[in-house]
Every structure is written in structure tokens, then in C-alpha cells.
Simulated assay, not measured.
Amino acid sequence: METQEIAKRLVDYCRKGDWDSAHKELYANNAKSIEPYATPAFDQETVGLKAIQEKGKKFDGMVDQMHKIDVSEPLIAGNTIAFTLAMDVTMKNQPRMTTPELCVYQVKDGKIVSEEFFV
């Protein structure tokens, strides 16, 4: 799959909050995920598709209500994809909040090999 097609599919999945389908279809088995910083819930870096899928399931389990997800159109430079993602979300036992971030993905051999989030 070409980077442009991966970007379109990824944005479509993110707009629906369907992280699991994105992981299954678009990610390499050795992909890595990098958060801006470690938290009590998540390490800063997660390596391997199975671990990334578990991270996504854990995040979904922490959500009380997803009110809205805004995802910009992707920017593509070579094998790099970037877009903004803002979730209007209420996490369990937390007040409602908006979490804007810049998402950057690297593609190699038709699969996403890394994702990194910036706040």
C-alpha cells in the first residue's frame, strides 16, 4: 500500500475512533508507538503490534464517553504522514476534556512502522 492510501485509511479509522482496525490493517508487526511522556497508565514507548493493540484496548477501557473526534486532513512528505487529532472525551472518574495532539507516522514497505504523538 502506498503512503497516500495508508494516510487516507488511517485518517478514516481515527475519525471513527477505530484504533483496532487501523492497527490490524496498517501497522507492521514491529511497529513502535511513542507518547510525549510516560504516565501512570502508559509507558512513553510501546514496541510491537500486539503491545500497541493492547495499549489501544486499555485506552478504550479508560474512556467513559467519547463526545467527538476531530482529525485534520493528512500531510504527506515521502514516507511520513502527519495530522492533528483532537478528542473531546470524558475519561472514567475525570472531568470532560479536549486532548489536541499532532500525530506523526513513518511508513516502510507499505506498513506503519512508527507513530509519535506531540502535545
Rank of each mutant, 00 (worst) to 15 (best):
M87T: 08
K92A: 07
A82I: 01
Y105V: 04
K92R: 07
I69G: 00
T99Y: 05
D70Y: 07
N79F: 06
N93Q: 15
P74Y: 13
N93K: 15
K92H: 07
A82G: 04
L102Q: 08
D88L: 05
Y105G: 07
F83P: 00
I81D: 00
I81C: 02
M97G: 05
E101M: 12
M66W: 08
V107E: 02
F83C: 00
Y105N: 08
M66K: 05
K68R: 13
V71T: 00
D70G: 06
M97C: 04
F83S: 01
A82Q: 06
K108A: 12
Q106I: 08
M66P: 02
S72P: 04
V89F: 11
V104T: 05
E73L: 15
K92P: 00
L85G: 08
D88T: 04
S72L: 01
Q106W: 06
L75T: 15
M91Y: 10
T80W: 01
E73M: 13
Q94R: 15
A82N: 02
L75V: 13
D70S: 10
M87K: 10
K108M: 06
I76W: 13
S72A: 09
D88S: 07
T90V: 02
C103M: 10
I76G: 13
T99L: 13
C103G: 10
T84L: 09
V89S: 08
E73K: 15
N93V: 02
T99M: 14
E73G: 14
M97A: 14
N79R: 07
Q94P: 07
D88C: 05
L75R: 15
P95M: 08
E73P: 12
G78A: 06
M97E: 10
L102A: 12
K108E: 13
P95Y: 03
M91G: 03
M87D: 11
P100L: 07
L85R: 12
L75G: 12
D109E: 07
R96T: 04
N93W: 11
H67A: 10
H67D: 11
E73T: 12
I69V: 05
T90I: 02
F83Q: 00
V89I: 15
D70H: 08
P100K: 07
M66T: 03
E101H: 10
A77Y: 13
R96M: 09
V71L: 00
L102F: 02
T80M: 05
A77M: 12
R96I: 03
Q94T: 09
D88P: 03
K108H: 09
D70R: 06
K92Y: 06
F83H: 05
K68H: 12
A77H: 15
P100N: 09
N93G: 11
R96Q: 13
V71G: 01
T84C: 12
K92Q: 06
K108G: 08
V107H: 04
K68F: 09
L102R: 12
T84M: 13
G78R: 12
T80I: 11
E73H: 13
E73N: 15
Q106P: 02
I81V: 02
L102I: 09
I81A: 00
A86I: 10
T90F: 08
T98I: 15
M97D: 04
D109G: 01
G78H: 05
D109F: 00
A77G: 14
P74L: 13
I81R: 02
D88Y: 01
D70A: 11
K108S: 12
T98L: 11
